[in-house]
Design a binder for these strands. Structure first.
Lengths: 169, 169
DNA sequence: ACCGTCATGTAATCGGTTACATGATTCT
DNA sequence: AGAATCATGTAACCGATTACATGACGGT
């Protein structure tokens, strides 16, 4: 059975969403991503087809396929999958995300900051506004984790807006 | 000649570093990355072998190979490469970097923030200290772009230290 | 002379992205 | 009924990561 696979962040996203949903098709997952963590961690929709397949082959998910029509695949987390998710959630990490910011890379190599600043500050401001609206509208009902990460996103965007706004001149 | 290739951030990093160096081997590039932008944008050293090859094949770099011994490859930016870099530096972008922060992803899926907070706040504080030391020691001599991106990194790390410190409880 | 570590490079694998393609549905 | 858009899925490619491998060199 199931050759062992490496679990990537994408894997945990699929596991986590499926655990919340109970059972879902790749398309359902796509919808869930769009309204939740898609804000700070996007995925290509094709990955939501290939990743569950990979996870199912390794025993983390079970698959049920419709007999009729679209023959959609419905996935569910198995006990093995639940355990993997639990372990991952329990492990702390010192790993830091690198900035990997395109605009900053340009600045590093000598681009004129003032010419990048308008686009960047606007784009960050738009994102900030979006986050703030989500928080205002859904804030109370959001699960604690979702809310907290949203707040982190707001902090981060504020920082970037400040940074780039200070460079317009 | 040269089938057209897509230029990725990695491509521009190689172009940018080579332009600064004049001529360099992959190993030289590795060294340069380590002491400069490696702080906020790391690369696998293998990429510093394959990417120049790719760029050379497409005419952005010229290659000179040692006849003796190691047969190292030395690369130089061609006029085509210089033009590509110039264009890229001149183009603004609205593209935002997603957070893609592992710890935050765990929080999103329900991990206990307080149990992640110590590792994360320490790790971010360490990175912050590192940046501050670089700025203190080399700040004055740094090229403007490098200095500015370093300052951005400092701002960002401060934000994360605050965020995670506030969750320890 | 040997050992460990840094220097240097290549090969294989795999996740992720891009591109393509075809059902459903809604709107006019 | 046709067009447009959304839903759903597969295939191919490719950049990036991982693993492997050997050369050079400083120290004991």
């Amino acid at each position: 059975m199931a050759s062992e696979i490496r679990l990537t962040p994408t894997s945990y996203i699929v596991l986590g969403l499926l655990e919340a949903a109970g059972e879902a098709t790749p398309y359902d997952l796509k919808q869930m991503v769009a309204v939740s963590l898609g804000n700070f961690w996007t995925l290509q929709h094709a990955q939501l087809y290939t990743e569950p397949e990979r996870l199912a082959a390794a025993g983390y998910l079970s698959e049920r396929r419709e007999e009729q029509g679209r023959r959609r695949r419905h996935y569910k987390v198995t006990e093995k999958g639940r355990a993997a998710m639990r372990d991952w959630l329990g492990e702390s990490t010192r790993q830091l995300t690198e900035l990997r910011d395109l605009a900053l890379l340009k600045v590093f190599f000598g681009a004129n900051p003032a010419s990048l600043a308008p686009d960047q500050s606007e784009a960050h401001a738009a994102k900030l506004a979006e986050y703030e609206q989500i928080l205002a509208q859904a804030g109370e009902e959001l699960p604690a984790g979702a809310r907290l990460s949203l707040e982190a996103g707001i902090d981060a965007e504020r920082g970037w807006v400040d940074f780039w706004s200070g460079l317009k001149s």
